[in-house]
Structures are given as C-alpha cells and as structure tokens.
Simulated assay, not measured.
Amino acid sequence: ENPHLEWNPPGHGDLYMAFSESGLLDDLIQQGIRYAFVSNCDNLGAGMDESLLGYFASHELPFMMEVSTRTPADMKGGHLARHKEGYLLLRESAQCHKKEMEAFSNIASYSLFNTNNLWLNLPALKENINTHGLIKLPMILNVKTLDPRDHNSPPVYQIESAMGSAISLFKGAAVVKVPRTRFFPVKKCNDLLAIRSDRYLLSEDQKLVLNPRCISDEIKIHLDPDFYETIEGFDDRFKGGVPSLVDCTSLSIRGDVLFEKDVTLKGQVNIVNRHSDQKVVKAGSVISGELIL
C-alpha cells in the first residue's frame, strides 16, 4: 500500500560497508586523514574533543569507544562485556534472551554503557577489511510494526547491526570513560521534552549543558504514546512551549493533555486525563504531585 515502507533499515552497523564501498575510506586515507569520529545524529552531546583525539592518536589505538556510567535510565541500552577469550564486546538488549533480561539490566554487574561515540583509525580499518573482507557484525533482530507510526500495522522484523559491535573485531581496541555530558540522546519525544525545556542550556561554545538551577541531575519522563509518540502529536500539545522542568524530578502524563504557555512543574508530577476529549493545563499553572483532569 505504501512503497516508502518497503525497505529494511540496516542499522548504523552498515557504516563500515558504506565507508568502504563508496570509496570514501580510500579517499580520506589518500588525503592523509588517519582518524574519524562518528556518533549518532540524535546524540546532542557528541562532538569533536581534541583531548580524546590526542589520547586515541598517541596510544595508536585501532578503535575506541566512549562509555559512561549506566543509570536506571540506561538499563535497556547496549553495554560492554568481556568475552571469555578476553576481548571486549558489545551486548544489545535485542540480542538478549528474555530470560536473561534481568541480568542484562543489572547496572551493578554491567556498569558501563556504549554512548556510540566511536573513534576509528582509518588505516587500521582498511587493513581489517583487506585481511578479513567487509566488517562482519552480529545481526540484531528487532520486532517492529510495518508502519512505525501505526502500532496496528502488521508486525515485522527489522534485521540490523550496530556499529559499536566492531569493537570485538579490532585487536587492541579500547574504551574510554567519559562524563555524561558527552551523551544527550533524543530518541523519543520523552527525551525531546527534557532537551527543549529549561533543564538544558547552550554554552558559549554551543554545547548542551545541564542548567545549574536543576534540583536533580536526572529526570524520568513518561508521555502517553497514544498522544505524544510522534513529533506532530508532541508539537500540537506544547504549542505554547514546554513546561519549566528545573524543579521537576519525574513526570508522567496519561491521556490527551494540551499545555498552554508558562507552565511550571515541580517535584514528582503525575498528570492524568481520564476522559476521551482533550484537557488543557492553563497558562501560568504551577503543578506538583498528582493532577487529575
């Protein structure tokens, strides 16, 4: 019915094949460029860091992954493990059996997660490809719906790979622990709400930083997916701007709720609309605790 949906996104693990087959890898090496930094486009904390580049270059590493300390918000994200033969590997939640998810999510056992900020030694990448052929990464089977915007569309499997998995293919690959400021992902509208709010500021060098006025370094946000999952639905309900969240530690919104301008949320906030019609949080409202509309 929709030809635009008749394809399988290969995941960012396809980077290495595209890099090689396009000729870009050879072109960069011929220009004398030895190192590349790659990251997810949705990570607003990623950027060139000369100190990390210097460390990577001075230690002559073939591959380096930036990792950070896992928090409860990162329980489902890919984490680092060590193979019984000693080398590092990346484990994604989609690769984990359901019976092992509790252990997978244990942030005490697996304390570091992959930010997907990667540093590549281009000659080492070229040598790996020349020796072993195109980079072969573990396949990941993700359960999706044919139309991501319609949960009632037919269920499908997305077969993909993760670029961080290449860490297991480079002898001498390393990880470097970085501060959380290197990782501000916006994967869902829950994340977008926090980023658009006054919790974050742009520094003079255009880096996203946590507002020092925040009462908590972390905030847990849940928006009802029936109304806020798409960017269109999200924008329609925050036309007057997103609420102030500097004094908010958690936010849950269930039901269809529209926010007018200059709303302030404090502490743990739970907003519930139990009706089928949309309810409105009036301009200038200050909300803490539970609000039933």
Rank of each mutant, 00 (worst) to 15 (best):
L201F: 00
K144Q: 13
L125I: 10
V186R: 10
L120G: 08
V175R: 03
F227K: 04
W119K: 12
K126Q: 15
C96R: 10
L120S: 11
A108K: 13
L112P: 09
Y157W: 06
E100W: 08
K188P: 00
V175M: 07
R180P: 02
D198R: 02
N142R: 12
K98R: 13
C189F: 01
I107C: 05
A174R: 13
D217Y: 05
S109F: 03
I215P: 03
D226Y: 01
F234I: 06
K126P: 03
S168R: 09
E229P: 01
D198G: 06
E127Y: 13
A174I: 03
P155D: 06
P148C: 03
N128S: 11
P155N: 04
R182Q: 10
K220W: 09
I107N: 11
H151G: 07
I167P: 03
I167A: 07
Y200H: 13
V178Y: 06
L201E: 08
N117I: 10
M101N: 02
R149Y: 06
L192N: 00
A124R: 09
K177E: 10
L134A: 08
Y200G: 05
M139T: 15
N121T: 04
V175A: 08
I167V: 14
K98Q: 12
I219V: 11
K99F: 10
I219Q: 07
N121R: 05
F184L: 12
E127P: 03
E100P: 03
E204C: 04
M163G: 00
E127W: 07
Y200W: 13
V178I: 09
L134N: 12
E218S: 14
H132A: 07
I221D: 08
V156Y: 01
S105I: 00
E232C: 03
P185M: 07
D147L: 00
M163S: 08
P148S: 05
K220F: 15
N116S: 15
A108F: 02
G233W: 01
H97Y: 09
N114F: 15
K171S: 05
V143Q: 14
K99D: 15
S109M: 11
F227G: 11
L112M: 14
L223A: 08
L125A: 01
F113T: 07
M101E: 12
N142Q: 15
G172P: 02
K207I: 04
K126V: 04
F234H: 11
P138W: 11
T145I: 00
P212T: 03
R196G: 06
R180L: 05
E127A: 15
C96I: 14
H222M: 08
P212Y: 05
